[in-house]
Amino acid sequence: MSQSRGRPRKASAELLQEAAFELFQVQGYRGTSVEQIARTAGFSRATFFNFFSSKSELYWLDTDVLLDDLSAHLEDRLGIGESVPLREALLSHAESMSSANIPWALQNFRLLESADDLIAGGAGRVLRLNRLLESYLQRSAPESDLIERSATAAITTALLITALRGWINAGVSRGSFRSQLERILSSGA
């Protein structure tokens, strides 16, 4: 029986992210080097780049997990054999969200002195979210108009991000993400 060597890939990425966030709180984003992050996590600089293309990519590990979870949820909705409206699919996914799911960087980005890096890295995630929603709409209603699907996906992407930002900013009084999302979807869609 062969044994796996080394740390699991995901655990290693999470260790690097944890070390980085600790250093960012103490030294700030700009004052923390990739070398320091790697060393604090017990890795080499080269190992850091096996997981992340840049220091700003550390912010997005948790967000990528959320997008993966949403993708899997939407796939499940498509797999049940009946057309579930996108709104309902998103609301049912929102039920699984808790405060523990909020990416640390999205709650604390003001402390990190790196809004530009956060925005640059976030753009690709917004596009990924939009593609997920557009794909869901296309697969759940293939006869629908391409322009209408694209517009619905773009509007829903904006509403979903607005709901998430409002939910994060509400702090301890935030309530459930589903209720926040439902309120935003009702007001904007």
Rank of each mutant, 00 (worst) to 15 (best):
E75A: 11
A158T: 04
G81N: 11
K55F: 07
G124L: 11
S144D: 12
S83I: 02
N108F: 09
T162Y: 11
E113T: 10
S140F: 11
A158R: 07
L118S: 04
F48W: 02
L91Q: 08
R128D: 09
R125E: 14
G121N: 13
Y59L: 12
D62N: 07
L61F: 12
R139G: 00
E134V: 10
E113N: 14
P85F: 12
R87A: 04
A153G: 06
N108Q: 14
Q107L: 14
R110P: 02
L112R: 00
S71F: 04
Y136G: 00
A94W: 01
E95R: 14
A89H: 10
R77V: 01
A100P: 14
S92F: 06
T152Y: 01
I155Y: 00
G171F: 02
F48K: 00
S83W: 07
A141N: 06
A105F: 15
E82A: 05
E95A: 13
S144M: 13
A100R: 11
A100M: 04
S92D: 09
P142M: 09
S53F: 06
S135T: 10
A105I: 13
R149G: 07
N130G: 08
S98M: 10
G81I: 03
Y59N: 10
A170R: 03
L61H: 12
N108R: 11
N50E: 03
D76H: 09
D64M: 03
E134N: 12
D145A: 07
V65W: 07
L127E: 03
T152R: 09
N50A: 03
I155V: 05
L137H: 09
E95Y: 09
S53C: 06
G121E: 03
L133C: 11
T63F: 11
S83A: 04
L67S: 06
L111T: 00
T162F: 03
L111G: 06
S96N: 14
W167V: 10
V65M: 05
I119C: 07
G122F: 08
N130S: 10
A170D: 08
A89L: 11
I119L: 14
E95F: 15
L58Y: 14
R131N: 13
A115P: 06
A89K: 05
T152M: 03
E75M: 10
L67W: 12
E75K: 04
P85Q: 03
A100E: 12
L118I: 15
L160G: 01
M97W: 13
H73N: 10
L70I: 02
F51Y: 14
W167L: 04
N169H: 13
P85K: 04
S144P: 03
L132C: 15
Y136S: 01
L146C: 04
T156M: 08
W167N: 03
S96E: 03
E95T: 13
V126C: 08
E57Y: 08
A100F: 12
S140D: 05
S150Q: 12
E113I: 04
S54E: 02
T157D: 01
L90E: 00
V172S: 09
T63V: 05
S144W: 05
S173L: 13
E143N: 03
D76P: 09
E143H: 14
G122L: 10
